[in-house]
Amino acid sequence: MTETAKDRAIIGSDESREYLTFTLGDEEYGIDILNVQEIRGYDAVTKIANSPDFIKGVINMRGVIVPIIDMRLKFHLGVAEYNQFTVVIILNISGRVVGMVVDGVSDVIALRAEQIRPAPEFGAILDTAYIDGLATLDDRMVIVVDIEKLMSSGEMGLVDQVQSGSA
């Protein structure tokens, strides 16, 4: 029995997880594919008054109201254009559905735990607090993001930080 447990532990560390990679500016990011609900185009966003500019508004996704965040605006990356090629990644963060506008979706990659190395302090767009580590794939460097942590952070303003008010 101890053996099986050990075996499983070895398999666990050996097992790779899938990441969806997307580009923001010149950098490539990876997020756990389990957080990705779907990828869709950008259309018909209803603005929300008095909200930060990177919150583009809300959309109707089959009857559910979903907020849309433009990561390009959030991280001040060049011009945020909205056209037929604009991509929205619909995330499911512990039951909350959020749309994230990115420059483009590039790939789904499999990474083993040991392939993700701790990220040094570096000048990434994202605060290192939200970064799980770096992975190198061929000649590309993918920044692995803890998307749950990022989206739940106060910085994104997606949730009421003072919960008492909503009771």
Binding site: A44, T46, V58, I59, P67
Partner: peptide, 23 residues
């Protein structure tokens, strides 16, 4: 609030005939 948060001046949202959201 299901997926976002309370917005001041707005009590909720609805979906209009064209599929868009109206506050």
């Amino acid at each position: 609030e299901t997926n976002y948060r309370k917005v001041e001046g707005v009590s909720g949202a609805t979906i209009m005939g064209d599929g868009r959201v109206a506050l």
